[in-house]
Design a protein around this nucleic acid. Structure first.
Lengths: 133, 133
DNA sequence: TTCAACCCTGCCGCCAACGACAAGGTCAAG
DNA sequence: CTTGACCTTGTCGTTGGCGGCAGGGTTGAA
């Protein structure tokens, strides 16, 4: 994560939540799953820097696309602007590529099923049904 | 379901399970979810006719493609060879078309996410990194 | 007869991604 | 100095698709 200055966007969990369209509960959950990290203020409150917003948005985007937290954990290092991080990290990279392959299979399976269902529905209606985008 | 003769493929749950690559437990679950039905022998055992095999395979196929039991329930009537069933049933049909649209959206979201991840990975192995969202 | 291999109906457990509390600490404003 | 809006940890609940086990009946074969 490499932060040279102590942090500019000192933001608490509630603010981060509204900024990312989620809830404090979910953010704690992500932290506990190892997807995000936080520092603590003197009073014990979580404090986030401004990079957290992008990170959480990435997480939400991937979750919304049907990925699991585990999947996201695999891909996140590739999404952070974390340029100085480990070099292409052959290992994590391969894991990510594997997951990507799994994603592709899943998409293919769903697409096939959808096509068959669409065909069945067309047959059911005597073929006079608008095509499915 | 229309069965003119009492049934040829009098088969019990275990056999149906192995024939469809699933388990008795799952079949009871499908029944309780209203996806399949069974008669009962004098001893209380479930008895299925041969159409059950195809039906269950359809179910498994759709589940494997990521559909829920509820989704499957919507589509099943269109998949049975149940030609003499209700006429195109404008209502159930529309529900099915709606679900199909949802499927399409889901596939689109996943495809988009996959493309972005793939792009990020490519950059990771070749060039600079850029966040997804 | 007795055994193994089936079947039955509950009902609890699990995984995921949180939601919804409880019971308490903190802090700025009035 | 009290309110009220924040925050903390902890634990239980929920939805979906079953797995697994308890406790019991049934049946064909040895």
């Amino acid at each position: 994560m490499i932060r040279l200055v102590p942090g500019v966007g000192r933001v608490r969990i509630g603010e981060l939540a509204t900024a990312t369209g989620t809830t404090a509960r979910a953010l704690r959950h992500y932290e506990q799953a190892g997807l995000i990290s936080s520092e603590r203020a003197a009073n014990g409150y979580r404090v986030y820097d401004e990079t957290a917003v992008v990170r959480v948005r990435n997480i939400r985007y991937l979750l919304a696309a049907g990925l699991t937290l585990e999947d996201v954990q695999v891909f996140l290092p590739c999404l952070d602007g974390d340029v100085a991080a480990a070099p292409p990290s052959g290992k994590g990279l391969r894991v990510a590529l594997d997951r990507l392959a799994v994603l592709n299979e899943r998409i293919a399976a769903q697409t096939e099923a959808r096509d068959r269902l669409a065909a069945a529905l067309r047959e059911r209606t005597g073929g006079r049904v608008r095509p499915v985008a």
